[in-house]
Structure formats: structure tokens, C-alpha cells
Design a protein around this nucleic acid. Structure first.
Lengths: 101, 101
DNA sequence: ATTTCCAATCGTAAATTTACGATTAACGAT
DNA sequence: ATCGTTAATCGTAAATTTACGATTGGAAAT
């Protein structure tokens, strides 16, 4: 077996922590999450009003946060309501806590 | 949202948190930091032995961690000893703690 | 002065990220 | 059936990231 990047075996926790960290690695996404923490939930449009970014860009950031498992969307036609994914949020919190001791 | 000093600070915090998170956003860098937490310090060469990555690649990851302020290097010719930057580590820890509540 | 060792830096290519405007899809209301 | 509203997706360009091998730099030893 070759020593390629794909074959590096990281501990699952490290990979998961890195995945969460990467999702948090942009100020807009931090701000979105902080907003969700305050508001508990919000619509995409709310964020488009707050941030000086195109709607498609906000959508992309939301997609990344969703892919990382940090948020979840509930269809609420014609809007979509985004909330923190509390289950994964807890996991992330614990991983970061454990990492920083 | 009001334009208060708090909001500006809040924004700076978000940027700083995102900067730290971005540095943590790669499994290799997480693993390097975990290793430094255990060993307290180590040389670049130690990491090159541990990870199946080129020396230049490890060096690049170290540079990013250093730029983010999470580690610091002490010249110890002809080696360079890397350690956690405890001051900034504490700041990062507090920022993440505050973020996750 | 030359050699040796370690690690940073350079040059690079491939992949990914970030941003935008334009388009499409889904649904309710008219 | 058509129109509005909302948000995802497409197509894209520019910037950044990640990886590598090759080269360079600095300090100690020969």
C-alpha cells in the first residue's frame, strides 16, 4: 500500500474535530452560528439582510454548516428555517473541550 | 443590530475565532497539536517521522499553526523546537468555550 | 573552507474555497 | 394556470490550500 494522503490514518476524533473546525473557519459562518444561538432559528433571508453578501453565497455557507452537521433546515414553505443541530453541537462542544483540556 | 462598541468587539472575536478554527481545520494540524500537548514540545523531524508526509508539507502546516499563534518555535541549532503557545492557547480555549457556552 | 544536518522556502500543480449573477425548483396564493 | 416569493443550484472566475520535490540557509563539526 502506498503512502498517499488518502491512506493516512487519523483518529476518528481528530478527523471529526478537524471537520467541525473547518466549518467554523470562516467569520461569516461563525457569525451565522452566533446569530442562530441568539435567535434559536432563522430563515436564509434574515441572514441575507444582515450580511453584505449575495443570497447564493449565504446559501453556500449554510450548506457547509449543514454538511458539517452543525445546523439543520426545516422546510416551512416557502421559507426554510435553519436551527442549530443540538445533537451535533453537543458533540462538537465536547470535542473542542476535550481538545483544549 | 445597534452599532455599539460591543458589536465591533464581537466582530473581532468572531474573526479571531474563525482564524483559530481555520488553523484547526485540518486533521494533520490537529494531530500535530495533540502530539505537542502530550510531548509538550517536539522537533520538526519528529513529526516527519510520524506522518507519511513530505518534510516541506509538515513545515507548511507548522507555519500555519505558527501564523495562527497556536505554536511557537525555539531555535535550538540545528533543530527547531516547537511548543504550544500557551498564552494564545488559553485565548483560543476561552473563545471556543464562550462560543459553545 | 568544506561538509553535514535540519528545517524553511521556492516553484509547481491539483484541488478546494469563496464570491458573484443567473437560473431553476418548490410551494402558496391569486 | 399563472404569478410571487424564497432559497437551492449552476456556471464562473479568482484566490487559497495542500501536496510534492528541489533548493537554500544557518549553525556546528570536521
Amino acid at each position: 500500500m502506498e503512502k498517499t494522503t488518502e491512506n493516512i490514518i487519523f483518529k476518528d476524533d481528530s478527523k471529526q474535530l478537524a471537520r467541525f473546525a473547518k466549518a467554523l473557519g470562516h467569520p461569516t459562518r461563525i457569525a451565522i452560528l452566533k446569530h442562530l444561538e441568539n435567535q434559536s432559528c432563522c430563515f436564509t433571508g434574515d441572514l441575507v439582510d444582515i450580511f453584505p453578501l449575495a443570497q447564493s453565497t449565504i446559501s453556500q455557507h449554510l450548506k457547509e454548516l449543514k454538511n458539517a452537521g452543525l445546523i439543520q433546515g426545516e422546510v416551512n414553505p416557502p421559507k426554510i428555517k435553519y436551527c442549530i443541530n443540538k445533537e451535533n453541537w453537543k458533540i462538537a462542544k465536547e470535542l473542542f473541550q476535550g481538545f483544549f483540556e
